[in-house]
């Protein structure tokens, strides 16, 4: 619709195609509009977004830092060790929430859109290259990850029995780089899952992939603390979990939020950047593969 004008008492639309804008300009405009669309949908679904974001971290800190101390089951030993555990858990919970946003905000809707609804077609026909539609999904997912972290952190930091003294030490430079990096990485992971799994395979995604990732993802303990789990002098668990991308997120937040020991930052950053690149690559390829034949 090129212009709308009033003619003979009623509005008349004149269809007169304008010469196409350059690919770059059209793509940038469409990209911004796609993001806006995702944020509008987020606003409309806040009633789902907030419980799904808040509940799991809340339950984790509630059980470990409130119920357990109350019933005399202290995790990590009493006193100072307990305070340390609390700090470890808060960092882990923030990392876990961002990871879950990647799954819930990117992977699951995408599985649905590729599946029976096919509604992604409409956005694929918007005037921008197909790969940028996938990037738009990652950016929108990452924004949701950041919002999730912002909601979860205060909850995780507040819910505990008074006896547990949570001592957080915020390293701002680490925190402010870790937040976007982790959010993008997890959203890209979501894109990879979303383009590789069919609707009927979602239970497998949760049962076989997400579950071990979260349990062995350093949420409840620090990676450095795994060293004593050994067979024949080899810290096998500590080695195996290195393949789990969530490890670097939770260790990263441990480095950002606590004074406790953590995996060295010179390992965390490059590995996370590498995972970002890998997941973006697999995700974008998967996306192209799904929408173009």
């Amino acid at each position: 619709m090129d212009e709308l004008d009033t003619h003979a008492g009623r509005t008349e639309a004149r269809v007169a195609p304008s010469p196409p804008r350059s690919s770059a300009r059209a793509s940038w405009t469409a990209f911004k509009a796609l993001l806006l669309r995702d944020l509008v949908v987020l606003r409309k679904t806040l009633n789902i977004f907030i419980p799904r974001t808040v509940l799991q971290p809340f339950l984790l800190v509630f059980v470990f830092l409130y119920v357990f101390p109350k019933i005399g089951e202290s995790v990590g030993g009493g006193g100072r060790a307990e305070a340390q555990f609390a700090a470890v858990l808060v960092a882990g919970v923030v990392g876990l929430s961002i990871m879950f946003q990647g799954i819930q905000a990117v992977a699951l809707p995408m599985v649905q859109e590729f599946g029976y609804t096919k509604e992604i077609e409409d956005r694929v026909l918007a005037p921008l290259p197909v790969w940028t539609v996938a990037v738009g999904k990652v950016v929108a997912g990452a924004i949701q990850g950041l919002i999730a972290a912002a909601i979860v952190f205060p909850i995780a930091a507040v819910v505990h029995v008074p006896q547990v003294s949570l001592s957080l030490t915020v390293h701002w430079a680490v925190l402010l780089t870790m937040l976007p990096l982790a959010s993008i990485m997890c959203a890209a992971l979501g894109l990879t899952f979303g383009t590789r799994f069919e609707t009927r395979q979602v239970p497998i995604l949760f049962g076989v992939i997400i579950l071990p990732m979260t349990f062995l993802g350093d949420t409840y303990y620090a990676w450095t603390a795994l060293a004593p789990v050994k067979v024949l002098g080899w810290s096998w668990l500590q080695t195996i979990v290195l393949f789990n991308p969530l490890i670097y997120v939770t260790e990263g937040f441990r480095a950002a939020l606590t004074g406790s020991t953590h995996m060295p930052l010179y390992v965390i950053y490059p590995v996370m950047v590498a995972f970002c690149a890998l997941f973006l690559w697999t995700g974008i390829n998967g996306f192209r593969h799904r929408v173009l034949t």
């Binding site: 669309r37 409309k44 509604e119 992604i120």
Partner: peptide, 27 residues
Amino acid sequence: IDVVAHPAMAKQLIGVVPQTNTLDRSL
């Protein structure tokens, strides 16, 4: 416009009524 070489350009000039319902159900 070559639709393979310049898809983003070509897409500005086409409208599609598809076979299946591809409306955005979130909106």
